[in-house]
Amino acid sequence: MTETSWAGWNPERLAAEIEETAVPYGMVAVWWLGQGSFVLKGGTSILYIDPFAMGEDELKSRHGLKRSYPPLLEPEHIRHADYCLITHEHIDHLDPAAIAAMAKQKRETIYMSPRCCIDVLVELGVPANRITAADVRKPHVDQNRKLAVQPVPAAHEELEPDEHGYHRYVGYVIRFNGVHIYHAGDTLVYGGLPERLKQENIDLAFVPINGRDVFRTDRGIVGNMNYREAAELAHLANFRTTVPMHYDMFPGNTEHPGYFVDYVYDRYPHLPVAVLARGRRFLYASDEALR
């Protein structure tokens, strides 16, 4: 992607901004790359969730899919990840182009993914000793980076644990730089999820809103919660700020984030929401940071 493409977007400049942004304790910087793909930074630590950077030509030729807009970061620009969290194996969440580039550029990155994805990561060049299987029964704790990651079962469209209790689809609760974050992955709202998340005291939640219907099911598209369900989850789980996601990447599987905003405004006006601009830095400050 050149300097003049997509309204002058420059992925090298975005990569530099991520590297250079200073984030005090109690805050997190967020860059949304579209779909369910996010970059988080707290202190000097950088965390990617479902990095999706596959170019338009490769995506179309290999997978028959069309992007609504070009990648905001190309694979070679993802060179600074301390952690990479993968929610499941679908191409827009486990992107072979992004993972292969990451594996070449920074061997110290720690990866977490569902157990069923580990062989794929190794084939893409990730050292096996840098991969942790996402286990919903226990958190991963990194004392040096003041980071804790708790995988949460996701139902896309069903909960699918294997015979060892490892789930095919997960979301993540992340305690990072003094902020509690929830990334839902691809999921419906299932029994017990709102209550579990309420106990986590989530500051910032990323939830899908694109929904599902019989026509998309007939085309083989696996569904998520819709904007109404996402709003009800935010209310029941008492998220302090909710960000809609997974609504903009592929024609025919989209939703208007304004519907989510309107639904929350009409029914739960006390709930803060934020609609992020693609690739633009968003800073979240917890109550602790503002004391």
Rank of each mutant, 00 (worst) to 15 (best):
C84I: 14
C84H: 09
C84D: 07
C84S: 14
L85N: 07
L85H: 09
L85C: 08
T87Q: 08
H88D: 13
E89Y: 12
H90M: 05
H90D: 11
H90F: 06
H90R: 09
I91F: 06
H93W: 07
H93V: 11
L94H: 09
L94C: 11
D95H: 04
A97M: 05
A97P: 02
A97F: 06
A98E: 09
I99Y: 03
A100G: 14
A100C: 13
A100V: 08
Q105D: 05
K106S: 09
K106A: 06
R107K: 10
R107W: 03
M112Q: 06
M112F: 01
S113M: 13
P114F: 00
P114Q: 01
P114E: 00
C116Q: 10
C117P: 06
I118G: 02
D119F: 06
V120H: 09
V120M: 12
L121I: 09
V122I: 15
V122L: 12
V122A: 14
E123M: 10
E123R: 14
E123W: 06
G125I: 02
V126W: 00
V126F: 01
V126R: 01
V126S: 02
P127G: 04
P127R: 02
A128N: 13
A128E: 15
N129D: 15
I131Q: 06
I131D: 08
I131N: 07
T132S: 12
T132N: 13
A133H: 01
A133L: 03
A133W: 00
A134R: 02
D135G: 04
D135W: 02
V136T: 12
V136I: 11
V136Y: 00
